[in-house]
Design a protein around this nucleic acid. Structure first.
Lengths: 118, 118, 118, 118
DNA sequence: GTGGTCTAGACCACC
DNA sequence: GTGGTCTAGACCACA
């Protein structure tokens, strides 16, 4: 798999997982791929996958059962949305507001820009 | 001055300059502060300021007159807007679209979020 | 049954057994559950239960009669207390002392903290 | 420097730092050793030191200034005490209570044990 | 110089 | 088999 350079690979892997969980590719209480397994399928070092898993474990989106593997936590979906929503409001919304002023964009124009991308 | 850790300092300084130019704090053909001057006032390494200046010079927003200093280029405002607009549409608009889907946000809700910040 | 992730499961199972022995759930010379039986009731790998049994066997708290099962050893209670006491004094007491200094806790405050949990 | 095997080295390094901060070896707003510097002095891999620093950064005990190094955060001392206190109450106090019951220790006996260690 | 990330490969305890 | 930690060494962007 290919990763883009703008963002750390371990974060892109974390996104892969959260996206998968949102799409119910992995459901609550289900086991996600083992570190090594996922690492070889992504053609990435196991440490890098491990880092993504630890990152999500800290956010209580996945949890580890000793010697067995990582599992999707109950309420993972809600946690993912809550975290992403908070990030969006804290980091992106102010930026959007600033850019609208700078570019002299009305909300309708912004709406059009967003609708235009498929 | 304090900078946030998420973004390179030289980019934050560049934003400081473009914002100042847009607000006509520095007008076209006017001289902006010298590298050394600006560096001490920002409590930052002169190299870092220099990097911001080079960055804006590449975008033809400012220009260097050897031995004298950096000056705001003609049409700097239009260039700033053009560049920021392109970046906004290419990088941010798709991200906004994605987040709206993920967070299940309507345009009205987005509008409210944006209006809510002052 | 649920285990916490901080401690090895086989040690948690060993604690389950010593607690049971202290509470006379299993008395001296009585047979404790078979490895397989216990494993299925705990929803755990039999190897893990076996490891807990071996661990207690090494401490002479339980003993194996080949082909029959594991039995609580004579004097198991005294041994359990002796071992736990030694561990407590060697490992935990110094730590408590250190934390009291760090957190600036008096004995009375410690006493209160301990009393507060039920 | 020697580390004991019971606890991850990166956590022992984190303890080294929090202890140092509490003892004002490094004061608020002061720079702590660079990752590489500390790694060589401890005879440990830089990654391991980095992990300890990241760990403390997550807890907002230290903070990074880009390209310069890590600095002790304001209020680091309070944060350290708050975190350690919470851990103590959540993990150790219940255990102490349990051991007192099991070993049939009175509080005065516990007090004596603690006082006995120099 | 600084931190941040990644790879390759190893060892360990645990299940 | 699983994760968890560590080493050695590399490359990068940034100050």
């Amino acid at each position: 798999m290919e990763f883009h350079a703008q963002k750390a690979i371990f974060l892109q892997i974390a996104d892969l997982l959260t996206d998968g969980i949102m799409e119910e590719k992995w459901k609550v209480d289900e086991r996600i791929p083992s570190v090594r397994e996922f690492a070889t399928s992504l053609e990435v070092n196991p440490n890098t996958v491990m880092r993504a898993y630890s990152y999500l474990q800290d956010q209580e989106i996945i949890a580890n059962k000793r010697g067995i593997g990582f599992f999707v936590s109950p309420n993972a979906n809600h946690k993912i949305i809550a975290i992403k929503r908070e990030e969006f409001i804290k980091l992106e919304v102010p930026r959007i507001s600033k850019m609208m002023k700078l570019l002299d964009l009305s909300f309708d124009e912004l709406k059009k820009l967003i609708s235009d991308i498929e």
